[in-house]
């Protein structure tokens, strides 16, 4: 059940992003629900699992988009790895810590996306809209992360995402 839910989360995240949230952008920035789930998973499960989950979620997103397949996979894997390294340094039951890592994760992911897309493959234009886009997306993600983190943390303790529910 745990694995099914972990697989369903990025699927539903892309569905919501492409239908509902795509019409409610903040200053042209859309939220990244897939990243929020990757960040929470990495923060609660450590760097190796975080990097692996980030890679798979990013790859799924790339396959849906159909261009530059692997850019999101690598950037989310790297983000998952770094956020996973923070697991031992912070108390994960604190909501504020959860929101802080979402903000940090969004900035890191944007940075990796930019480095991969621009430096390696010249995909993106370098201008201030990328920086402001990353900041607005971080704020959007933090707002959405409030209810998601409460649900996610409780689920990992005694719900569908808890290790005892693993099959």
């Amino acid at each position: 059940m745990r694995y099914f839910v972990l697989g369903l989360l990025p699927f539903m995240a892309i569905f919501l992003q492409s239908t509902f949230f795509s019409t409610y952008s903040i200053n042209d920035a859309l939220p990244d629900l897939v990243l929020i789930f990757v960040v929470f998973f990495a923060f609660l499960n450590g760097e190796r699992k975080g990097a692996g989950y980030g890679f798979l979620c990013g790859l799924f997103e790339d396959l849906y988009l159909g261009r530059f397949i692997g850019v999101s996979a690598l950037s989310k894997a790297l983000t998952g790895y770094i956020i996973g390294r923070l697991q031992v340094r912070f108390f994960n039951e604190n909501l504020l810590v959860g929101l802080m890592i979402v903000f940090m994760g969004t900035i890191l992911n944007s940075l990796f996306m930019f480095i991969l897309g621009w430096s390696v493959f010249s995909v993106f234009n370098l201008d201030t809209s990328i920086i402001s886009g990353a900041i607005y997306q971080s704020i959007y993600n933090v707002i959405l992360a409030v209810p998601i983190y409460i649900w996610y943390y409780n689920s990992t303790q005694k719900g569908v995402l808890s290790l005892t529910g693993e099959r």
Binding site: Q17, S22, Y64, S72
Partner: peptide, 9 residues
């Protein structure tokens, strides 16, 4: 029926 789910494309 849908729009891009991210900021990049």
């Amino acid at each position: 029926i849908a729009r891009s789910p991210n900021n990049w494309y």
